[in-house]
Design a protein around this nucleic acid. Structure first.
Lengths: 230, 230
DNA sequence: CATTGTGAATCCCTTCACAGCT
DNA sequence: AGCTGTGAAGGGATTCACAATG
C-alpha cells in the first residue's frame, strides 16, 4: 500500500483541506489548476499525486469537489474513527487536547496521561488524566478498530520522550506523533501485530526546528525559499 | 547562500541537537557513524550534509563535538539573537510563549498579539498581550538586528491566517512560522528589505497533517516507514 | 588504520509533453 | 475545445566507493 511517495502523501492531505474549503464555498467543480493554486503547487503535481490514489477526474471538465474529497478521505483512512491518547499533559498537551478540529476527521481522544501527581486526576474535556503506569491496562481495556488505540501523541519533555514512546509501543499503540525535540530510536520500539512484531511508526512535529530553519533563511541576502512544509 | 538542499538543512538542525546531547554527556569526539545513529540517518548522509557547510572533521578520528556544534550554530545563524512575535494567543499561542527551550537558541519573544478584547491586556511571562492593530507601530519601535522583528509565529484559527500573515509582512517581519492548517498565499505577502521587496518566507508546522499521515500508515498491512520528519 | 571528504552512480521525485476522453 | 491521466525526460538528493589523511 505504501509505495506512495511520502512527499505526495503530505500534499494530498493538503488537497483534502483545499477541497473542504471549496465545498464550504459551494464550489462543485475544480480543475487541477484550481487545486494547485490554492495548495501552492503546480497543476502537474496535483494530477501526478492523484494518480497514486486512483482516477477521479473527468477530461475536459475537472474534478467534482465532493467526489474527490470523499474518495481521498476514504483512501487516506480518514472516513473511520481513530482512537488517540496523549502522553504528557503540560501546556502543549492541554492545547492539543483542546484543539478544535482534532475531533473533526475522526480523531478521538480516548485517554490522557502524565506522571506528575498534581496533574493526574484533573479533568480535561470530560477525560480524567491518568498516571502513565495505567497506559498498558487502559489500552487493553479500550474497544476499537483496527487496534484499540491507534495513535499516541507524545508531548513530554525531550529527555523523557524515548521512555514514554517505549511505554506507548509496549501498550500496543502503533503510531506515534512526536512533539518532543528528540529523535526516537525506533529499533527499540516494537509493537506486536497480528502478523508479528514491527517497529512503531513515528512522525515528528518539531516547531523549534522550524524556527531554526527560518532563522537560517533570514541570514541569506535575499532569504530562502518561500513556503516549506515541515 | 541557499544552495543548500532543504532536506539537508532540516537534518543539520537535528545534528546540532545531537551534538548538544553529546556535549551534555561530556563526549568530546564523535564519528559520522556516532552522529548518524543518534540522528537516525546513515553515516554517508551525515558526511555529505556537513560538506555543504564546510570541513570540520579529522580523518581517522572524527569530529570534535564542541567545535562542530559551535561552527554549525554559527553557520545556521543560531549564535545570534532573533526577535520573535506571536500572533494569536489562544491555548496554542500560550503554550508556545511558555515553551521551555524556545528561549535557548536566542529566540526571544518580544511581543504577543491577539484580537479578542478579553485576551488583550493580559500578561504572559512579563509581556502584555497587545491588539493586532498595534503590530505595525510596535515592530517599528523595536530595536534589533538584522531587522527589528525577525520571525512571526502564527497561531490563529485557519480562517484568519492569511490576514494575520499579511499584517506580519506589512509590519516588516520577514519570516513566518505558520501553525494554522492553511496554505498561505505568499505572492500577496510582500516585505520590504534594503534591496527592495521580496516575498515573506514561510515554514508550516501542521500537526493535524501529521496525524493524518500517521493514520494512513496505520491502514497499510505492515504499516509504512518508521520515522518521518515533518 | 580508522575515518573523513567527495566525485560518480543510483534512485526517486518532479516536470513536461501529449495522447486520450468527454 | 479543454482538461485529465501518464510515459518519458530531467533534476535533485541519496548512496556508494574510494582516494586522501591525520
Amino acid at each position: 500500500m505504501s509505495d506512495i511517495p511520502t512527499a505526495t502523501l503530505g500534499r494530498v492531505v493538503t488537497y483534502v483541506r483545499v477541497l473542504e474549503e471549496l465545498e464550504a464555498q459551494n464550489v462543485q467543480q475544480a480543475s487541477s489548476g484550481d487545486l494547485a493554486r490554492r495548495a501552492g503547487v503546480t497543476p502537474f503535481q496535483v494530477r501526478k499525486d492523484l494518480t497514486y490514489f486512483g482516477r477521479f477526474g473527468t477530461r475536459g471538465i475537472g474534478y467534482t469537489v465532493a467526489v474527490l474529497r470523499r474518495e481521498l478521505l476514504r483512501k487516506l483512512g480518514l472516513d473511520q474513527t481513530w482512537n488517540v491518547v496523549i502522553v504528557g499533559m503540560g501546556r502543549l498537551g492541554h492545547a492539543i487536547a483542546n484543539y478544535p478540529g482534532a475531533s473533526d476527521y475522526q480523531f478521538r481522544n480516548v485517554g490522557l496521561f502524565d506522571v506528575a501527581p498534581d496533574v493526574v486526576g484533573r479533568e480535561v474535556r470530560g477525560l480524567t488524566i491518568q498516571h502513565i503506569g495505567q497506559l498498558g491496562p487502559f489500552v487493553a481495556s479500550v474497544a476499537g478498530t483496527p487496534r484499540q488505540v491507534d495513535l499516541g501523541l507524545l508531548t513530554v519533555p525531550a529527555e523523557h520522550a524515548q521512555a514514554a514512546a517505549q511505554a506507548l509501543a509496549a501498550a500496543g499503540v502503533g503510531g506515534i506523533l512526536n512533539f518532543a525535540p528528540a529523535v526516537l530510536q525506533t529499533q527499540d520500539l516494537l509493537v506486536s501485530t497480528p502478523t508479528g512484531e514491527r517497529e512503531v511508526t513515528v512522525e515528528n512535529v518539531d516547531f523549534l526546528a522550524g524556527m531554526k530553519r527560518l532563522a537560517f533563511y533570514m541570514l541569506g541576502p535575499q532569504a530562502g525559499p518561500t513556503e516549506e512544509t515541515v
